[in-house]
Design a binder for these strands. Sequence first.
DNA 1: TAGACTATTTTGTATAGACATTTTAGCAAA
DNA 2: TTTGCTAAAATGTCTATACAAAATAGTCTA
Lengths: 238, 238
Amino acid sequence: MATTLPHYLQIQHHLLEKIQSGEWPANHQIPVEEQLAKDFGVSRMTANKAIRDLVQQGYLTRQAGLGTFVTDRKAESPLLDVHNIADEVRSRGHDYRNDVLTREVIAADDEIALRLGVRLGSQVFHTCLVHYENDTPIQLENRYVNPRWVPGYLETDFNRQTPNEVLVAACPISDIEHIVEALLVDAETAEWLAIDTTTPCLSMIRRTWSGEQLISYARLIHPGDRYKLRSSVHRPDA
Amino acid sequence: MATTLPHYLQIQHHLLEKIQSGEWPANHQIPVEEQLAKDFGVSRMTANKAIRDLVQQGYLTRQAGLGTFVTDRKAESPLLDVHNIADEVRSRGHDYRNDVLTREVIAADDEIALRLGVRLGSQVFHTCLVHYENDTPIQLENRYVNPRWVPGYLETDFNRQTPNEVLVAACPISDIEHIVEALLVDAETAEWLAIDTTTPCLSMIRRTWSGEQLISYARLIHPGDRYKLRSSVHRPDA
DNA sequence: TAGACTATTTTGTATAGACATTTTAGCAAA
DNA sequence: TTTGCTAAAATGTCTATACAAAATAGTCTA
């Protein structure tokens, strides 16, 4: 059985669901501490702790004497493509294919729950693919998907539609976050990518949102000598 | 008179000072809750609140049964912004400085002429700097600048104004292109960055335009374990 | 000596209550 | 009408205490 969630996390998840589902729009006032405490049968301090965390994470804003409100997230500007590795490969005139190593439903552990913004122990989709360019592995993709937003994800034939395409088709992608670093990989990963463990690799963690919903969390590993990441930014105002 | 700070903020400031001054290096164990509470004459819950906040902000990491430790923060920076490495370092509360290895006018060879979009053999500015965060090298910057658009470039004191700042000051930057890859560096570069030649590094090639003019071509090398690139993109229309 | 148990240290969660501060609304007085 | 006062609603801070859970170090036992 899954570990029972601490009360304050239960409250957080309840609030996040309301926010992320859109039931509570921006600037909506959430129930006051005392009410939340009563609803969940906990002390006011526990409700306070739950709210406090979400304020620090930017989901809520508070004002003494007034109440607690859903944060109105302000927009930023630039563009970056959600690039599709299959198109990329084909645009170079090469053959694209992939191998599916894993395709499963798992219970979210701490890390996944945190990164994907779901409840601990809740079911999430997990796939692991190797993408090939002309039979050379160029990317290991480890992806976690929130089933709520892409229910048919696991049934896809990924050689017809890449995981990325499935997401894009399922919901409009509005926000993407990338974290890129260089690192060495473990033996298993090295084998999948047909490299050795001394080859520098590019690690890219990509999180994808649709509105307020976090759709997917992916870790992409590229052998350093087989991949370059390119991005162009144009700022009309500058 | 200024409002007296809440106790938990006083504690936070005390802790942050220790961290940012370097008195408590990464992974240093900070006093336990009970000790802090005693030192500041508050209850354990108040000390807990102070620490909890700093954990959420990423300054500290905790482990039940072990203690609370100063987070070893890997550098992170926006991939798409014209980032200024000096500001970035200082925003982490660390010291910034750089060493200028090369500062010269050279005749453009094939590659430079191609990349910078100038005629073969025409004169271009070239600088090579090592950027330090708390005396640890975090970036080797090899930069070529089109003299036509930034004539005073070579005369700059780069410890007062980074190369990037000079460009931004000289002309409005409208377009940036990044190409990122993971690689191993040669012995000379490794020495400059105080790493060995087996450490994976992040290489970033950055080209900067102002309107149609290509202003600068730079190759930036980061030791992989000391740097992460972060980028967030929001597309309001999607 | 290896393994099991135990005590200690430290953080994690939770409670019930207290008082302070901020903001608004409503009411009363000038 | 304007001003000032007061009550209320809501968050902000703080305490003293309790027990749970995790990690470690030491001790006892087979």
